[in-house]
C-alpha cells in the first residue's frame, strides 16, 4: 500500500513540475517580450517607416511599414480564405456530397493544415518565378490564403456539421433550394463557429513568417500597389533579430510586442464574439 501511494505522490509531483514548465514557458515568453520590448516602444516607432539606419541602431524610423504591410497581407488573405472556406465547408454537407467523399476532402484538408508554412512559401515562390514576377503583396496574400484555407474551412465545417437537420428540413419544406438553405439558413446557425474559424485563421496568418519571407519580400516603404514588395511584422522581427546590436534587438522585441498584442487581441475577440453571436443560435 505504501509503495502505491508513494508512486501516486511521485507522479503528482512530476505532473506539477510539467504543468509549471508549460505555463512557465508562456509566462517567460510574454515577460521577455515585454521587458525587452517595452522600453523601445514609442510613438515614433509606431508612426514612422523604417530607414537604413534603423537596422544599424542609430535611432530614427519605426515599424509603420511592417504594421501596414501585415494588415495588407493578412486581411485580404483572410477574406479570400474565408470566401473559399465557406464555399467548401457548406459543400461538405450531406445535402450536396456523399459522406465518404466529404470524409476524404476533410482528410486532405487536415493534412494540408499540417503542411509546414515554408512549403506554401516555396510553392508560391515557384509560381511567382514561373510568371516572371517578383516578390509582392499579391503573392504574399496568395501564400497566406493557401495557409489559412485549411484552418478556416475545417473550423467552419465542424460548426456547420452541428447544425440540426430539422432546421434544414424546415427550410426545404418551405420550398427553398439547396443553395438557398446553405447560404441563408445554415451560416446563421453556425455563425459562432464560423467567426471563431475566421479569427483563428487571421491570427495564424498575421503571425506567419516562413510563407511570406520569399513571396512578399522586404522593403522600407509602405507598398503603393499590390505589385510592390512589402515588410510585415514577422519578417521585420526576423530581420531585426539577426543583428548583434542590443539596441536593434530591443527594436525586434518591441515589434514582437506589437505582434503579440495584435495576436492576443484577435484571440480575445474570437472568444467574446462567438459568445455574443451564440444568441442567434437555435438550440
Amino acid at each position: 500500500m505504501n509503495k502505491r501511494t508513494l508512486e501516486e505522490n511521485i507522479f503528482k509531483i512530476l505532473m506539477m513540475i510539467s504543468i509549471s514548465l508549460v505555463v512557465g514557458s508562456l509566462i517567460i515568453i510574454v515577460a521577455l517580450v515585454i521587458i525587452n520590448g517595452a522600453p523601445a516602444l514609442s510613438l515614433d516607432l509606431l508612426t514612422q517607416t523604417s530607414s537604413g539606419e534603423f537596422y544599424l541602431g542609430a535611432g530614427g524610423g519605426g515599424i509603420l511599414n511592417a504594421i501596414v504591410g501585415s494588415l495588407l497581407l493578412a486581411l485580404p488573405a483572410t477574406g479570400l480564405a474565408c470566401l473559399i472556406g465557406i464555399a467548401i465547408a457548406l459543400y461538405l454537407q450531406k445535402d450536396f456530397i456523399h459522406s465518404w467523399l466529404a470524409g476524404f476532402i476533410r482528410f486532405s484538408l487536415d493534412i494540408l493544415w499540417g503542411i509546414p508554412s515554408i512549403i506554401y512559401g516555396v510553392f508560391c515562390f515557384l509560381i511567382m518565378i514561373y510568371l516572371g514576377m517578383s516578390a509582392s503583396v499579391m503573392f504574399g496574400i496568395i501564400a497566406l490564403t493557401l495557409l489559412e484555407i485549411p484552418i478556416i474551412t475545417r473550423y467552419m465545417d465542424e460548426s456547420i456539421k452541428l447544425v440540426p437537420i430539422g432546421l434544414k428540413e424546415g427550410a426545404y419544406s418551405l420550398g427553398s433550394t439547396k443553395f438557398e438553405t446553405a447560404v441563408k439558413v445554415v451560416p446563421r446557425q453556425a455563425l459562432p463557429g464560423i467567426l471563431a474559424g475566421i479569427l483563428l485563421g487571421l491570427g495564424r496568418g498575421i503571425g506567419d513568417a516562413a510563407s511570406i519571407l520569399f513571396t512578399a519580400g522586404f522593403t522600407n516603404r509602405i507598398p503603393s500597389s499590390i505589385y510592390d514588395s512589402t515588410a510585415a511584422l514577422p519578417t521585420m522581427i526576423f530581420q531585426l533579430s539577426t543583428s548583434s546590436l542590443p539596441v536593434v534587438r530591443q527594436k525586434a522585441s518591441a515589434t514582437a510586442l506589437v505582434l503579440l498584442i495584435i495576436v492576443f487581441t484577435i484571440s480575445i475577440l474570437s472568444r467574446t464574439l462567438s459568445k455574443r453571436y451564440m444568441k442567434h443560435v437555435i438550440k
Binding site: 515568453i29 517580450v33 506567419d208 513568417a209 522585441s253 505582434l259 495576436v263
Partner: peptide
C-alpha cells in the same frame, strides 16, 4: 497562438 518568430526571438534572448 504565439507566432513562431516570437518563439525564435525569445529563444535568442534567453
Amino acid at each position: 497562438g504565439v507566432p513562431s518568430v516570437v518563439y525564435g526571438l525569445c529563444a535568442l534572448l534567453f
